[in-house]
Design a protein around this nucleic acid. Structure first.
Length: 421
RNA sequence: GCGGACGUGGCGAAGUGGUUAACGCACUGGAUUGUGGCUCCGGCAUUCGCGGGUUCGAUACCCGUCGUUCGCCCCA
């Protein structure tokens, strides 16, 4: 019987696991400087949580969720995104009572039943943040800045920040109606999807890959003209702050997000790099003014974003940004007979207590074979213990950098290595 | 959900309608028994994703299936 991983899933081991953890740790350390705290929520939630938040017409809900009935006949879903769970937890635990602003980051697997391709998997890691509370344009800008700083800290080149405002629900409804009127009867030569979108969600016609370059689309009514003055002012302030903070951005009036809960400011960091990753979003998010309220909670706005960790790993790999992740061994202990092996084991663990990385060959007794193991892990020092050393309470220690060796008393070993490794 | 490409040992990769399935890396053993990383020699796929068909014969041809991968839709 041959077992293999499920379609669209990934095993991370050795170097890849190290990369994943590296990105995660870096992200955490930067967000901590912004005062974020970690929130860990379950991977499974009641299906309704996601239907409510993403919208029952969204693609995620209609065709991408892993949903099943548990033994109690409850509909359970593997989370397709992080925001809904965090909002649920925020409300359930009344995390709004102690402060007017709650800032969380999370990291974990998300699940979407899609056809895998470059940078897309059925189980993928997202690193994201959510902030609850009224913070105005400064908060929104800070959130975007935190994402930007993170990408800079990771060293990723070729990223572009696209930002837009889609207004509140009222102005969006108004805008959708305008678009509908505008496009009705005019899109006979548009793709089939766009024809469907006209009824369902006319905003999506604007970022259709096939039709978005058409004159009709380019000249379509702009969302700006449907926005409330407050929305408009807010957006202008956000971009102003970004400019002040020297965060390059590009206003993209066609940027509309796929999840229904967004309002006002939405943004994406996309990759502008050659190859298959070109154009992929590595971070996306926005404001959601009414999501908490719609969940039955107080009227508290939220804003957040999520990074696609695998995508970040992919770009970083292609840009050679994982240089210092090689496994490092400090010492290999070579033991030439069983009695020496026991002594070696003791020494190894004493050294490990000093935080040194120590390995040894458990199987062989010949010097040559053990040296071969040592070559593979390329240690700073090689210790040799045989009958000769044992009888004198000595060990031989060899510096592999300059190929010198000396005999020292085994009691001196810790002191000898101090400061050298 | 739709379309294309691909599927040979741990990895990379050649190959042909007929029985020894190249080669490289990795792994493993050895080149006289306490000093390696180089070199040399040996071992390592009864088997070419799986199931069926065509054929005297298939890893090679056909069908199906599963899987990988890329694109579309959508998205991180």
């Amino acid at each position: 019987m041959n077992y293999q991983k499920l379609k669209g899933t990934l095993d991370f081991f050795q170097e890849e696991a190290t990369k994943l953890r590296f990105v995660e740790e870096k992200a955490k350390s930067i967000l901590k400087t912004f005062g974020f705290e970690e929130i860990i929520t379950p991977i499974i939630e009641a299906t309704d949580i996601f239907v409510r938040s993403s919208g029952d017409n969204s693609d995620i809900v209609t065709k991408e969720m892993y949903t099943f009935l548990d033994r109690g006949k409850r509909s359970i879903t593997l989370r397709p995104e992080g925001t809904a769970s965090v909002v649920r937890s925020f409300l359930e635990n009344k995390l709004y009572v102690n402060s007017s602003l709650a800032k969380f980051y999370y990291c974990g697997p998300m699940f979407r039943y899609e056809r895998p391709q470059a940078g897309r998997y059925r189980q993928f890691m997202q690193f994201g943040i959510e902030v609850f509370g009224e913070g105005g344009p400064f908060l929104e800008a800070e959130v975007i800045i935190s994402a930007y700083k993170l990408l800079i800290a990771l060293g990723i080149k070729g990223i572009k920040l696209k930002i837009n405002t889609i207004g509140d629900f009222a102005s969006r409804k108004d805008y959708a109606d305008k678009l509908k009127t505008y496009f009705t009867g005019q899109i006979d030569d548009f793709c089939g999807d766009c024809k469907k979108r006209l009824e369902k969600n006319p905003l999506r016609i604007l970022d259709c890959k096939i039709d978005s370059n058409k004159e009709l689309v380019v000249n379509a009514p702009k969302i700006k003209d449907s926005l409330s003055l407050a929305s408009l002012n807010n957006f202008n302030e956000v971009t102003d702050i970004l400019t002040t903070m020297a965060v390059p951005y590009q206003i993209d009036e066609l940027l509309v997000r796929g999840l229904d809960y967004y309002t006002d400011t939405v943004f994406e960091f996309i990759l502008d790099v050659p190859g298959e990753l070109q154009g992929l979003a590595i971070c996306a998010g926005g404001k959601y003014a009414d999501l908490v309220k719609n969940f039955g909670g107080p009227d508290i706005p939220g804003i957040g974003y999520a990074f696609g960790v695998e995508r970040i790993m992919a770009v970083m790999t292609s840009q050679n940004l994982f240089n210092n992740l090689v496994k490092q061994t400090d010492i290999v202990i070579i033991c030439l007979d069983p009695a020496s092996k026991k002594m070696g084991l003791q020494l190894a663990n004493q050294l490990r207590d000093e935080n040194m990385i120590v390995e040894m060959d458990y199987k062989n007794y010949s010097l040559k074979q053990q040296f071969k193991l040592a070559d593979k892990v390329n240690p700073r020092y090689i210790i040799i213990i045989g009958e000769e050393e044992r009888n004198n309470g000595m060990i031989t220690i060899k510096n592999t950098k300059n190929n010198t060796q000396e005999k020292i008393k085994k009691e001196q070993l810790i002191a000898y290595t101090k400061g050298k490794i």
